[in-house]
Design a binder for these strands. Structure first.
Length: 452
DNA sequence: TCTGGGGTCCTAGTGCCC
DNA sequence: TCTGGGGCACTAGGACCC
């Protein structure tokens, strides 16, 4: 571990919900919950105002609605979140070439490698300037942790939330970590936490006292050694800029369990095609095909098959997935199906699958040709997802507050409006209303003509 | 109350080869 | 021919993370 707090961890506060609040002035200061709106949806992010009611990530949406019936419930807009994430990551890259993104809203930065900080004082200045720059560019708050290792920087940013900065001075780590719960350490989730608790270990100090041998006996080699080291505040993991993907997968949870075996088979084929599209989009191929089935009782099983060489051929992946499905009992119904490919390579073994590839290309071409038709049908149906941006010929830019019974309710406001906008209701097939791309959260050009 | 979607890593069992 | 063991690849499942 280095002796200066020059590893920075950035964590954007309640990211998805904050983006929605920034983009919709009428939701600022209000409880906002972003997640799946279907009967089996879960909460992706809750704003701090919603957390007051006990709503948190991964909670079933139905439960969230009971706890916070008056909150705004919105579907995620990943395209928008991704574009804002790119702005934030660009600011991090100005600090150092060594930036390790963990997700859309989190990253580590090695400030020493960027030669922008070499001691506590300079690190703190860099962290505060970063927070100000993020706010200026996006209007959003991010919390910053600074420490001498990744683990401690992450713990520091957790303590800094919301909208703060915490720096852990080298030499103070053990004393700070000691009284904390074992769940503070990365890699300790509900199962490991329970396991340790049954052994009488609830704090980080107690992990250190138990000793390495005991930890290995309790949790196995890798986990035991790692956890003991973390408890002593030892963490030498470097910030790694470019991580290569190890697998690509897609999965769907169905609103209602599927019982019909034919339908299950068709869904698996559809998922196989989607998975291959993603694989090809990333310029990858893979050797191992994985089928995932979650049954009516939530028991989950996987089946996998390793081919002789990597493929990105839809027909080959479809066939393998179908073979794997043959070995699974789906009586009783399935709630989730998934198809994945691992053992990735950036080339394919053409000779093995040349023939199938020809057929597959036709299949994909047919599907791609078929896709616009499906989109057109969707437009005819006029779906208005809650939270999505729209434009009305007369009233301008707004967002969907809700829809149903042939009506759609729109609030007309832009991200940079000071006052909440007016609400109006239209027929779902109103020709003057159209879906549009989100506006930037912070105006970059003169805003006249786009106002509410 | 009833549990998403996309990943990573680890462990344990098994089969094969030498 | 039989047995044992190390190393490796593969498979399945579990835990964890955001």
């Amino acid at each position: 571990m280095r002796n200066a707090p020059t590893i920075l961890h950035l964590d954007m506060d309640a990211f998805y919900a904050s983006v929605e609040q920034a983009s919709k002035p009428s939701l600022r200061g209000k409880a906002v919950v972003v997640g799946g709106l279907g009967p089996r949806g879960v909460v992706a992010t809750a704003s701090y105002e919603a957390r007051v009611f006990g709503v948190h990530s991964a909670m079933p949406m139905a439960q969230a609605r009971r706890l916070a019936p008056n909150a705004a419930y919105l579907v995620p807009r990943f395209g928008l979140y991704r574009s804002i994430s790119e702005q934030v990551m660009a600011l991090l890259h100005e600090l150092s070439p060594l930036v390790e993104p963990l997700s859309l809203d989190e990253a580590f930065v090695d400030l020493e490698a960027g030669e922008v900080a070499w001691d506590a004082g300079s690190a703190r200045l860099v962290g505060e300037k970063l927070r100000a720059d993020i706010r200026a560019a996006t209007g959003l708050a991010g919390s910053v942790g600074l420490a001498a290792s990744k683990m401690l920087a992450k713990i520091a940013s957790e303590q800094a939330k919301p909208d703060g900065l915490v720096l852990i001075e080298p030499g103070t780590e053990r004393a700070m970590l000691g009284p904390m719960t074992v769940r503070t350490l990365p890699g300790v989730g509900p199962a490991t936490g329970d396991h340790l608790r049954r052994a009488g270990i609830t704090t980080v100090d107690e992990i250190a006292e138990a000793g390495e041998d005991e930890l290995v006996r309790l949790l196995g080699k890798a986990h035991g050694h790692a956890l003991y080291a973390m408890a002593l505040a030892h963490d030498e993991r470097p910030v790694v800029a470019e991580r290569e993907a190890k697998s690509v997968s897609v999965e769907d949870t169905y609103d209602v369990d599927i019982h019909d075996r034919m339908r299950v088979g068709m869904e698996v084929q559809r998922l196989a095609d989607r998975c291959v599209r993603r694989l090809r989009g990333a310029g990858l191929s893979g050797r191992t095909i994985v089928l995932k089935v979650r049954r009516y009782d939530f028991s989950t099983l996987t089946r996998s098959e390793t081919l002789r060489g990597p493929t990105d051929d839809p027909a080959v992946v479809r066939e393998a997935a179908a073979r794997l499905l043959d070995s699974v009992d789906t009586t009783g119904g399935v709630r989730l199906l998934g198809v994945g490919v691992s053992g990735l390579a950036d080339y394919t073994q053409e000779d093995l699958f040349a023939q199938a590839a020809g057929e597959a290309a036709e299949i994909l071409a047919e599907e791609e040709a078929a896709e616009p038709v499906a989109v057109q049908e969707a437009v005819v149906e006029r779906r208005w997802p809650a939270g999505h941006d729209v434009r009305h010929a007369e009233y301008g830019h707004g967002w969907v507050q809700g829809s149903g019974l042939g009506r759609v309710t729109v609030r007309f406001e832009t991200p940079w409006a000071v006052e909440p906008g007016r609400v109006r209701t239209f027929r779902v097939d109103d020709p003057e209303l159209e879906p549009v791309e989100p506006l930037p959260l912070v105006p970059t050009i003169p805003v006249d003509g786009v106002g509410a």
